[in-house]
Design a protein around this nucleic acid. Structure first.
Lengths: 149, 149
DNA sequence: TTGGCTGCAAAGTATTTGCAACATG
DNA sequence: CATGTTGCAAATACTTTGCAGCCAA
């Protein structure tokens, strides 16, 4: 697998953008994340690592990272802070979320992916991405009374 | 199909909440919407209909409507205004979005729904909902150069 | 050198909330 | 009439932006 920093640099070059220390540091920090991260997590992380990258730069870099397919939006709901996920070099997967305790599990179901392509093809479109979230109630939460989506 | 206003009233009663004129008006306005709506659209619509329901009341009512499964989140992305969709009494469907022109198409694929249930069952969970969005580039947009998700 | 990039702080947007008046049950 | 609900406006929370100095190419 290619070095993430170098890969992102190529993406920047292809757009005639500059390879800066801040952008390198952001990619380096992200490539070590395991879970979903929020902007605030990343900013704190960078600060802890002694990086100079500011919150504004992080916000400005996120769209570039999405564009280069190194990260993707993992959670986004009205009124809630969004979470992202570093995906470069990690197997594709979707998520199961417990609507009560918010725990999440990754899964992959090839059959669903294939049917998605069928659907797009059926309408004459080219599938370029998808977002699938399954909402469940996990056994531990099943007893308590809370809202279900 | 039950009257949406009455159905929502029952939901409110079941939670020991009050049936107010504002809440009735919101449901009545929603039951006539066809497309995805943003909070602002709804507020404007209510004002035009002479309803007294304010923006704050709309925001406070949305979670109740989601809970009662009369509406659902249709679009939500970081930094963008969310859009909702009235779903009561309308066939279940998911969406295809063109990432360039933002047009959207509804589709239903029973096979995907069944596989989703399999996935949840496989992990020992009860599936209570899902969100599936397919991102495509429509033929008209395919020529122009724009970002793909 | 010449733009693109950065940090800072200010500005925007979307959404939530405190409070006093009001309406429902 | 007791308490949930409402409108208003202020407060939040998240994200974007203008600008002057900085740095990559």
């Amino acid at each position: 697998m290619r070095d993430p920093v170098e890969l992102f640099r190529e993406h920047l070059r292809s757009k005639n953008m500059r390879c800066t220390q801040e952008r390198d540091e952001i990619v380096r920090a992200l490539s070590k994340t395991k879970k979903h991260f929020r902007i605030e997590d990343l900013v704190t992380d960078l600060k802890a690592k002694g990086s100079a990258a500011s919150r504004a730069t992080v916000y400005r870099t996120i769209p570039l990272l999405i564009e280069s397919r190194m990260i993707r939006v993992a959670e986004s709901n009205p009124g809630e802070e969004s979470a992202y996920e570093y995906i470069y070099g990690r197997g594709h997967h979707d998520h199961l979320y417990c609507t009560r305790c918010n725990a999440h599990i990754e899964f992959e179901e090839r059959g669903i992916e294939l049917l998605q392509m069928d659907v797009a093809r059926h309408y004459g479109y080219k599938l370029v991405g998808h977002r699938l979230e399954l909402y469940v109630v996990c056994p531990q939460c099943r007893e308590t009374g809370a809202r279900e989506i």
